[in-house]
Structures are given as C-alpha cells and as structure tokens.
C-alpha cells in the first residue's frame, strides 16, 4: 500500500465564484499527525469536504492511499473516518443505533458493529446514554459521539474538524491523550483546529492555510525554529540614563527599568556580557519564546 495517506494536487474549490480553496497541493504520510490551521474561512473545511466526498471540487486531484476520491470513491472513503465540526446525527436513531448504523454502511456485520459500538461508548463515557436520543445529549457528549462514530469502522485515517470546539478543559485533555495514543498505534490523523496550542501539542507537521492558499507547510519543530522569535527581558536595578555603545547593536527597547531584547535566545550570554561590561546591575531575567500561536498570528496578519 502507498505510504502517502492523502495526496492533494492543485485542489481548487469555488463557491458561487468565490475561491474557497485556491490551487493547494500537499501530501500527508501514513502515520502522521497533521495539523491544518487557518482562521475562519481559510478553506479548511472545504478541503476536508472535498477529501471525504461531502463536497465536489472544481479541479485538482485527491488520492487516499492511492485511490482517487472521484473515480475510486468507495475505496477512498473506506479508509477515512470523519468527525465533522457541526453535529449531524440522524434524529430517528438513538446513540447506539447511530454508531451501529454508521458501521453497517461500511459493510461490517451487525454483531461486530454492536461490539465495537459498546467498546467505543465505554471508551468515550457515553455508554450510560446508549438508549438516549440525540436531543438528550449535551454538547460535550455529542462531541464524544461524533468522534466515536468516526472511529466505528476502524479507519486508517481520522479526519477531525475542530474536535475540541466548545468542549470543557477536562474533555479536551482526554481527547488529546486519546488522539496521541491512537496516532502511536498507527492511525494517520488530520486535524483542523482553532486552538493552535492543540496543534503545537499534538502535530508532527502543520500546514497554515489563509484565504484558500497555503502560507507555510513544514515539520512543526522546523517551522517554529524558522519563525520563532525570542524576547529577552532584563530588569535593571536602575533606569539607564544613556544606552551603552555595545548594546546599541541589538534590537531592543527600554520599558522603565526593563531592557527588552528582540533577539534569539542563543544570544543571551553575549547580551549579558555586554551589560556586565558596563557594570550595570541586573535584578531579573525573563526569556520568552514565541509559540506556534504567535507564528500563526504573524503569518496570517502578513499573509
């Protein structure tokens, strides 16, 4: 089997003349935890919909483990489990039926589906609600059910569209741990999220999408290294009257008793030595590195 889980080439998706996805191309490797980040309207859900068969697309090619999502749609769809952003449950079914029916659509016998449904309901803490209708579930329980439904046919690829939107902190952390474990066990995960912290914690590689175009796509660590900016804040005993010459060469600003350097944190020794040479007394040192969120915000602002 192809070790590229999802391959997207020159994907274009228009809605009423507006380009939601503008000629994007990328591959997701098997076993990868891939983050798809972007502000609202960036084209994330449109891309997911094109991959999963919920939306048609104008041009381009999408393959899932080598199967074309248009020509060989049945095979391509069998590999994917989708947890959509919006809840879309069948109101005629109860919790257990939702899982068992969805499993059946994948051609899996009922006995196996029922067993898996029970396991997943227990895993996600919704077993007690198995006979309840959807209306009786809270937002958090619905989110658990959405993810359980996406996993019912044991997909090789799990696509999660904003899985932690509107869930409490406890469930969010539970889901993070669960997804990490699932990924370690071999499931390829494609995650879109507004919580950049989530992507920073979970993803191997991230793609930043803005206005339907890819701004950056790289290994998360490399991306952070490439774009991260450090801020070294040094609190001085006394406010500086004049700036020493050997400090002027740095990118800095003065904020009261603080001397703030916008330099890479590897330069900290050099900066401290420069200060010491001028016999300036230091009270405190604080180093802050920019997070993926800072990088994301900067990119989107400039993109």
């Amino acid at each position: 089997m192809n070790n590229i889980a999802i391959s997207i080439k020159n994907l274009v998706k228009n809605y009423d003349g507006t380009e939601a996805v503008n000629n994007i191309s990328f591959d997701i490797k098997q076993g990868e935890f891939f983050g798809f980040l972007g502000p609202n309207g960036a084209g994330k859900t449109s891309t997911i919909n094109a991959i999963t068969g919920i939306a048609n697309f104008n041009s381009g090619k999408i393959e899932v483990f080598g199967s074309d999502v248009v020509k060989d749609y049945r095979k391509a769809r069998s590999y994917i489990g989708l947890s959509p952003q919006e809840f879309n449950f069948d109101p005629f079914l109860n919790v257990q039926q939702i899982l068992v029916y969805q499993c059946g659509y994948y051609g899996i016998p009922k006995a196996i589906c029922t067993k898996r449904a029970k396991e997943l309901m227990k895993l996600f803490g919704i077993y007690e609600k198995r006979n309840a209708s959807i209306r009786a579930l809270s937002g958090g329980l619905k989110r658990r059910l959405t993810i359980a439904r996406a996993l019912i046919h044991k997909p090789k690829i799990l696509i999660l569209d904003e899985p932690t939107a509107g869930v409490d902190v406890e469930l969010r952390h539970y889901l993070w741990d669960f997804l990490k474990k699932l990924n370690k066990e071999g499931t390829t995960i494609f995650l879109t999220t507004h919580y950049i912290e989530e992507a920073e914690k979970l993803c191997d590689r991230v793609c930043i999408l803005h206005k339907g175009k890819i701004l950056e796509i790289d290994d998360k660590k490399k991306l952070m290294k490439r774009f991260a900016k450090s801020q070294i804040a040094i609190e001085l005993k006394d406010k500086l009257k004049t700036i020493p010459k050997n400090i002027k060469k740095y990118n800095y600003k003065i904020d009261g008793n603080n001397l703030i350097f916008f330099e890479d944190k590897t330069k900290i020794n050099e900066i401290l030595n420069s200060i010491k040479k001028n016999e300036i007394e230091i009270v405190d040192i604080n180093i802050e590195s920019s997070s993926l969120e800072d990088i994301f915000i900067n990119m989107v602002k400039n993109g």
Binding site: T52, G53, I54, Y73, R74, K75, R77, S78, I80, L82, P84, E86, N88, F89, D90, P91, Q102, Y105, Y106, G107, R149
Partner: peptide, 14 residues
C-alpha cells in the same frame, strides 16, 4: 435539511 446525509455520503456505499 439536518445535514445527516453526510453520514451516508462519506461511507463507501455506491
């Protein structure tokens, strides 16, 4: 109307 047709569209049913 309620969007749950998506559950069928994403499945491998022809």
């Amino acid at each position: 109307w309620l969007n749950f047709i998506e559950g069928i569209l994403v499945s491998p049913l022809s």
